[in-house]
Amino acid sequence: MRRTLLGTSDLEVSQFALGTMTFGSQTSEADAHRQIDMALDAGIDLVDTAEMYPVNPVRAETVGRTEEIIGRWIAASGRRGEIVLATKITGENGGTVRGGRGIHGDTMIEAVDSSLKRLQTDVIDVYQLHWPNRGSFHFRQHWDYVPGGGTKAEIEANIVEVLEAMTRLQREGKVRHFGLSNESTWGTAAWLRLAAEIGAPRMISIQNEYSMLCRQFDTDLAELAVREEVGLLAYSPLGTGLLTGKYRGGAVPPGSRMSINANLSGRANPRAHAAVEAYAAIAERHGLDLVHMSLAFCAARPFMGSVIFGATGVDQLEHILAGIGMTLSEEVRNEINAAHRDHPMPF
């Protein structure tokens, strides 16, 4: 398993990471614990979670349940030192978490202590800001995005307040590094600039959606990530299951995400299904598994820190791990890029 240094830090992570957002909803605790063991056995040590998990849906009464499940694994296994633990604070929300209050100096201090307690550990390796308080163009909001969330001065004042809390948390030994998520180029640049100005911790990663179906990151964010050394932690590299092929031909397997979220939060549409057919054809032509090809594509991108995949069940994880770490030939990569031109931005 190839390993990468995340951003400008000394934190080394595996090039693939285990996502956990279904732990406690679609994935039972026993399966969740088994998945962490399996990932570690395969050389995957980055485990990504969030205070808000599990999904879907997000419910006030289940906030923190995934972290509790991971915490019980840590306590029972005694293997905290073998994983790189990443979690997140929730941005402004509809009231599910902290009555809707997002990321501020005081909420960050409170949220870290709560996560540490649930995770049964003393330190978080990467603490991420799940989404900006000001909103974002992610989660399919780019179709009618209008920059909002306050004036530039108000947004920057919030960033400075949070950077000061981050400084305190790092000094207290509770958080090693910090990262962004669902951020924009402007937002990331602002965090880096203001951190440098006040001597606060520098963001080492940005967790945004990235897959053969979602390549928003390929332009401005790609340049920023490479030049400024902010590694992408790619989420949904399998397009929330579309790139496993399980929804081909109109199939909706029982227990799948589509069976509980019919349009995959705005991703499932005729153009996305057509793109999947194009990528599946490439995989078949070269004797590759679509899942493995999709993950290998992501892993080879120049801005990649780590590729976060999730599995509902142990069987899916076994399938993923069977081909993890493969590389694609130049011919396959060229065909993928040609298919991307034919099927741009399907959602």
Binding site: G81, R168, K174
Partner: peptide
């Protein structure tokens, strides 16, 4: 000695609240 992870603290002095 941090209680949850049973590891020695990463820094001296240790500021804030810890088990």
């Amino acid at each position: 000695c941090l209680a949850r992870s049973r590891t020695c603290a990463p820094v001296i002095p240790l500021i804030g609240c810890h088990e």
